[in-house]
Design a binder for these strands. Structure first.
Lengths: 210, 210
DNA sequence: TCTCTTCCTGACCGTATGGTCAGATTGCAG
DNA sequence: CTGCAATCTGACCATACGGTCAGGAAGAGA
């Protein structure tokens, strides 16, 4: 019956509890939406009293904002996979891989993001208008360059990007529907690979690089 | 300053108010999610007192259920466009057209559906397991037949369907993001056509029928 | 050890929300 | 015209939720 013996440092306590809360919050926000989520539910899942949540995050909005920002960071990092590619097939293929992996390992985050955007992006509108817009413009330019050099079929870069986002994120956002249509079982390792292969195959052939 | 003179029939009253409420509800549920939506907001948008809503729909859940069911019906009808096609290109092309049109004219419905599925389909789980599963199996079989006959590239039918859903619904579910990246303006007629063309082009070429 | 700051939490509060209900109004059948 | 059932609604209620706070526990620095 021995307790954890080592006393915790201030830093550790703060870091640990913030992480605990953010993880619980991400899950609850994903499952219930902002309006449906309650601080009590998040607290229970994090194993902390509700009042403690308000010690670390003043309001529900602030907690939500932090969750959404975290997700955004992750996605931006994944985007790097598209850069420094020798060929369009490599670049876009790697991007699809990266986004499919995120959908698999981070489905809650994707759902929170989708929910946020669907509800009019009340808290991350400025991100959309600055960071995301810049990122999108940059990649669209890259794709346009590839097209101009005749290395892929002439498609609208913007709409190609939408297609990449839509297709990959669908596996996270609609995971429940996919699971149901899969006999109630989550996709297996093999099925995930099949999904990834199919997406890449159709899109890469679709833009004329296969 | 003349009022509408004609007194309304019972049937008309009921039909009209139910429609009014359902339309308002669809919009509010789409914008705020189930948890964030309030009966008061729906009532205000419908121009009726809140108590009147509860006269036609006993509970918030019941109203929500009706909204979701309506959407499901619309989608099922759209699916007919895939049948009776001479070629894969025709069938899938028509299905893309139909779903893109729904995304454009019925974006709220798509959002409500997405939200419902993301939250674990609490009210339409049985539809997923029966109607949708059957529909999906049927179309997957059709696609497989096309593949077996060598009329299109050998792709996984199930994942192709997911791709069609994802790509087309993205234009409804993420309309806010798309609008923001479009300089804050909704897609124009021309841009919608470009979107449709691009989606069809990439996917149809992707499955080897272009 | 003593003091200060951070961390923690049970109890509490104001408000908003889903839902109820009694009673008024109005179309409708006979 | 009359009685009945459908429609309507302001006022009300119980509950759940986000947020507060006073006061206790526990590391940190001297």
């Amino acid at each position: 019956m021995n307790e954890t013996p080592r006393p915790m440092r201030r830093n550790e306590i703060r870091a640990m509890n913030e992480t605990l809360i953010l993880q619980a919050a991400e899950k609850v926000f994903a499952e219930a939406g902002f309006g449906g989520a309650t601080m009590q539910l998040i607290a229970d899942l994090a194993g902390l009293p509700k009042a403690n949540l308000h010690y670390y995050f003043a309001t529900k909005e602030e907690l939500y904002r932090r969750v959404v920002q975290n997700i955004f960071e992750i996605w931006l990092h994944a985007a790097d996979s598209m850069d420094g590619a020798e060929t369009p097939a490599e670049g876009i293929g790697a991007y699809i891989d990266a986004k499919m992996d995120i959908s698999r390992r981070h489905p809650e985050g994707s759902k929170v993001w989708a929910s946020e955007v669907m509800h009019g992006a009340p808290v991350i509108q400025d991100y959309l208008e600055t960071t995301l817009r810049d990122w999108t413009a940059g990649r669209a330019a890259l794709i346009q360059r590839w097209i101009d050099e005749g290395r892929m079929a002439p498609v609208d870069p913007q709409h190609l990007l939408y297609m990449l986002w839509a297709t990959t994120q669908h596996y996270a956002d609609f995971s429940h529907q996919i699971e149901t249509l899969n006999g109630g079982k989550p996709l297996s390792e093999t099925q995930w690979n099949a999904a990834k292969t199919n997406v890449k195959q159709i899109i890469l052939r679709g833009i004329g690089v296969l």
